[in-house]
Design a protein around this nucleic acid. Structure first.
Ligand SMILES: [Mn+2]
Ligand SMILES: [Mn+2]
Ligand SMILES: [Mn+2]
Ligand SMILES: [Mn+2]
Lengths: 218, 218
DNA sequence: TATATTTGTTAGATTAATCTAACTATTTAT
DNA sequence: ATAAATAGTTAGATTAATCTAACAAATATA
């Protein structure tokens, strides 16, 4: 059984090593806001437990076992977020903090029931895929809005950041998953865009916002 | 902010001091299955935090503050049990263990929402009263079935023990809260009873079982 | 009352998770 | 290629929560 602390390290390793399959001690340390020596010693411990491939001065990699256990925690996190939004009518900006705690509950039946009540969802309220019961996650590659061209018609399918402030901002602009966005113009200088969607004929989105919106091209 | 560990001590103190308002170190130690020296040192800590009145060799008492904080944890526990039964269709024998973990979630909104979805219930699925938002609990005094007389007609309103095994036993006999029970005879020797209820014209209940059933006389 | 039993405390050790300071290895820049 | 900067490790301290062993106080028993 892994401690809550170990679970949080596993989850961070999983998320940070998504791209290239590895993470540096420094990166992990910054992400978790835990000093490097502490991280090093935890990596040795997770190495002992065969959850991480640890070798001095080498980048960190999750083992197959580590990836599975991390995936299962992320599964619990995302199922919880979905449950809070769909069954308890929370807003998508309120659920991350609560899920951050509930992901550590040990009770297969509890999450099984959530999954069932939700009808076995594949994505969480922020568009992130929910790992299956074996901890495996489909890697779906959405584009960033900031990588699209003028004239593109796209569907908003996810966000790369689930901070309350960002999601509340999207709420004020009526930007939610599923809506169709048309790109009217792009300001090269700062990456900001002029777009239209729903009843809004013209909205200005900063480069920062465009970077955080994931879309599917039609 | 109290740690999960501190919260569990507070809850135990609250429950054990229900009758006379105080508990011994020994009793608390046995209940929590934690050795006495550990309990003593935790009591000193909770004393510092003004949650417990601690004096060497004197019985332990919760302060007003301690009683409030304990009541709020028990509130979260019981709301959770009710939520699991009513909104997620768990059996009453499955919910205690899960609630034992969820009671430590820090999120007023989460429990507020549960309360609202449940329609502000006053009792949990085992008939125990749910403390209000200030941590105060109405002390309702049900009788034990074992204290009733032959011929009494009573309503099953609570159980004094929520262990899975006991509740599963009650399930097999179709004994659930709200049913009317008539006492047909009592065996003085072992306190067992012959009763009738629902579609069951004659059932034998051991003394142990009768001790654990709480009833209201009509 | 004197003794035995039970209850409670003190002292000191252990484990998990964290930190800072000091040192070493690796990478980058001159 | 050397020096500087960055990244990573080692050593040792700290805090929370637990334990065992030894001792002391309170209570029960003879
Ligand atoms: Mn989240
Ligand atoms: Mn977490
Ligand atoms: Mn319970
Ligand atoms: Mn608990």
């Amino acid at each position: 059984m892994n401690s809550l602390t170990e679970e949080n390290y596993l989850k961070a390793l999983f998320n940070l090593s998504q791209e290239n399959g590895e993470v540096s001690v420094n990166e992990l340390s910054k992400h978790l806001q835990i000093k490097m020596p502490t991280v090093t010693s935890m990596m040795k411990k997770l190495g002992e437990k065969k959850l991480v491939h640890y070798e001095s001065y080498k980048p960190l990699k999750l083992t197959e076992k580590g990836r599975r256990e991390a995936g299962l925690i992320i599964r619990k996190h995302r199922l919880t977020e979905m449950f809070l939004v769909e069954q308890m009518s929370f807003g998508w900006e309120q659920v991350h903090e609560i899920a951050e705690q509930i992901e550590h509950i040990h009770s297969p039946e509890f999450f099984e029931k959530m999954d069932e009540l939700l009808g076995y969802p594949k994505f969480d309220p922020h568009g992130s895929p929910i790992p299956d019961k074996t901890g495996k996650m489909e890697w779906i590659h959405f584009s960033k809005l900031s990588d699209c061209k003028v004239g593109d018609n796209v569907k908003l399918s996810g966000v790369t950041n689930s901070s309350g402030d960002f999601l509340k901002f999207l709420n004020t602009r009526e930007l939610k998953l599923g809506i169709k966005i048309k790109i009217k113009s792009i300001e090269k200088f700062d990456g900001s865009m002029e777009v239209s969607y729903g009843k809004r004929a013209s909205e200005h989105l900063s480069g920062l916002v465009c970077e955080r919106l994931l879309v599917e091209k039609e």
